[in-house]
């Protein structure tokens, strides 16, 4: 298997606080669904931000396809974000003044070439929402639009930070199974941060963090299907 993303001894300190990350090394394999779990404040989001290039680590480096991402300039970072990676956040971050369709086009690279809109909307079941505004959608619908926006560029890697954190059971299940389908059909690598243990059970690999450190890193021998998740 090829290593897509690699963290080498990354540490992160926010101004005067204790370290949010303490020298973490980690390799992410291409095409895998990796869940990162751990209690709140354990550094999951920070780890994801550093690995996706949204935040600079205080020490260490991140390699993407063997290039040192952490040393890229603004232009290189922008190209990476526009072409290679997708992001899904707990707060959907849909732009209020744009229709669903326009929100999705925001995810396109400059070339304008991306996933055919029809297929994408079929996949995410948002075909009849295209002309609506975010304010007119439910949370689950909004998150599916956000996912469409993240994958319309056919990213190599998708970073999800508590992507289902604000959703109810049904919507969450739908989103999780969608992500798995995307991984399967498009071969997208997915890094999924959650504090929900059930979601982790659907992943192929589960990394547990505590206090800025990796405390466990296991492979799921037999991941469950998203429909099998037992919601608390």
């Amino acid at each position: 298997m090829t290593i897509l993303l690699k963290a080498e001894k990354i540490g992160k300190r926010y101004s005067d606080q204790a370290s949010a990350l303490k020298s973490i090394s980690l390799e992410i394999e291409q095409g895998e669904f990796t869940a990162i779990v751990g209690p709140s404040g354990s550094g999951k989001s920070t780890l994801l931000a550093v690995m996706s290039g949204l935040a600079k680590p205080s020490t260490g480096q991140v390699l993407y396809k063997e290039n040192e991402l952490t040393s890229w300039n603004a232009k290189q970072l922008s190209r990476f974000r526009r072409r290679e990676m997708g992001q899904v956040f707990q707060a959907y971050h849909l732009l209020a003044y744009l229709t669903v369709e326009e929100n999705i086009t925001l995810g396109l690279p400059d070339s304008g070439k991306g996933y055919p809109l029809n297929e994408l909307t079929d996949l995410l079941e948002i075909g009849d929402l295209l002309d609506r505004f975010p304010g007119q959608l439910s949370g689950g619908q909004q998150q599916r639009v956000a996912i469409a926006r993240a994958i319309v560029k056919r990213p190599s890697i998708l970073f999800c930070d508590e992507a289902t954190g604000a959703l109810d059971e049904n919507s969450s299940k739908k989103v999780i199974s969608l992500l798995h389908r995307i991984r399967k059909t498009l071969g997208t690598t997915i890094l999924f941060v959650t504090h929900n243990g059930e979601i982790a059970r659907t992943a192929q690999r589960v990394i547990t963090m505590n206090n800025g450190q990796l405390v466990r890193d296991v492979r799921n021998v037999r991941p469950i299907a998203p429909e099998e998740m037992a919601w608390a």
């Binding site: 209020a96 326009e102 995810g107 396109l108």
Partner: peptide, 13 residues
């Protein structure tokens, strides 16, 4: 979608 439509959407927002 066409070329540059992302930037157009950005500007609109």
């Amino acid at each position: 979608p066409q070329q540059g439509s992302a930037v157009r959407s950005l500007n609109k927002q």
